[in-house]
């Protein structure tokens, strides 16, 4: 389990990596003139921790059968995933500025047949956890010890299919499956609990037979600790990570407007400045 232990040096390295991923996200959405910065920025620490420390993956062999799996069920946040895959070496980073363009491998929502290292297509909400259930079942069937991680949005869990999947993961005793809920509190139409209240969230997952780990999603050490704890649980585990939508760019934070909008030229400069100077608060 060496990939689950970490030192302060790892934390510093991963925080610096997260800063670069944030810059990539803003730059690629600016270049595309469209995209979803809010939910990409809220997930940066977790996706960075996974791709640059925890996941057992090989950029030279992206289809390696024993690799850990990651499904970004909230597929609209794909800029964070594309940036991590590129910086991790699955494809050249200069491709990032082709996001959403004609013939780009980087579709507006991810297509697994086009992107090296992408384990599953996504975009329609509520589906990823079921697919993760299937991947975790396959690991058990073939006695492989890879983990399957599925990241969901907090608005996304309003989809009923998520709870079909949750029920089946506990039924089939899928300890090798971890759900990560990016609780940034905002969805396209406003505050999540105004659109459709999802609380009490931890109780819901526990009632479905899952272990629950709650963490601050913007503290790298806390994120790494949560992933380690989830790995040791004897049940499928939900990591509920409290995050801020648009984290790292002050004018994007906690504002539903930035769920799906591209920064202007001026906003790009301001955002990159803030990310470079601020790092992570």
């Amino acid at each position: 389990m060496s990939q689950y232990s970490f030192t302060q040096k790892d934390v510093v390295r991963l925080e610096a990596q997260a800063q670069q991923i944030r810059e990539d996200i803003i730059a690629m959405i600016h270049a595309a003139k469209a995209g979803h910065p809010g939910g990409s920025l809220s997930a940066v620490e977790m996706v960075t921790a996974l791709y640059f420390h925890v996941l057992n993956i090989d950029p030279q062999n992206p289809d390696w059968p024993d690799r850990d799996r990651f499904i970004l069920s909230k597929g609209h946040a794909c800029p964070v995933l594309y940036a991590c895959l590129a910086r991790r070496g699955f494809f050249p980073p200069d491709i990032l500025n082709t996001l959403r363009q004609y013939k780009s491998i980087l579709q507006g929502h991810p297509d697994m047949t086009k992107v090296p290292g992408l384990d599953m297509s996504a975009g329609s909400l509520g589906n990823g956890l079921s697919i993760g259930v299937g991947m975790a079942m396959s690991a058990k069937l073939h006695k492989q010890d890879y983990m399957t991680y599925v990241m969901l949005g907090d608005g996304e869990i309003q989809e009923g299919m998520v709870w079909e999947a949750a029920m089946s993961a506990a039924h089939h005793d899928l300890k090798n499956l971890t759900a990560i809920v990016d609780c940034n509190g905002v969805q396209i139409g406003g505050w999540t609990n105004d659109v459709m209240c999802i609380e009490p969230l931890a109780d819901k997952w526990r009632a479905f037979g899952w272990a629950v780990v709650e963490t601050n999603g913007h503290n790298m050490a806390d994120v790494l600790t949560a992933l380690h704890t989830a790995k040791t649980m004897r049940k499928p585990t939900a990591i509920l990570m409290r995050t801020v939508k648009g984290k790292g760019v002050s004018f994007m934070e906690d504002d539903p407007k930035w769920h799906g909008a591209a920064p202007t030229d001026e906003e790009l400069v301001a955002a990159i400045c803030q990310i470079k100077e601020g790092g992570i608060m």
């Binding site: 599953m120 993760g132 299937g134 690991a139």
Partner: peptide, 26 residues
């Protein structure tokens, strides 16, 4: 028993789970 997966009365989950299994080469 090892080769059969029950998804209950939940067809969306059935198809999603099948897709996950298939993506791993099954």
């Amino acid at each position: 028993p090892e080769r059969e997966f029950s998804f209950g009365i939940a067809e969306q989950n059935l198809i999603g789970g099948a897709a996950g299994l298939a993506s791993c080469g099954n």
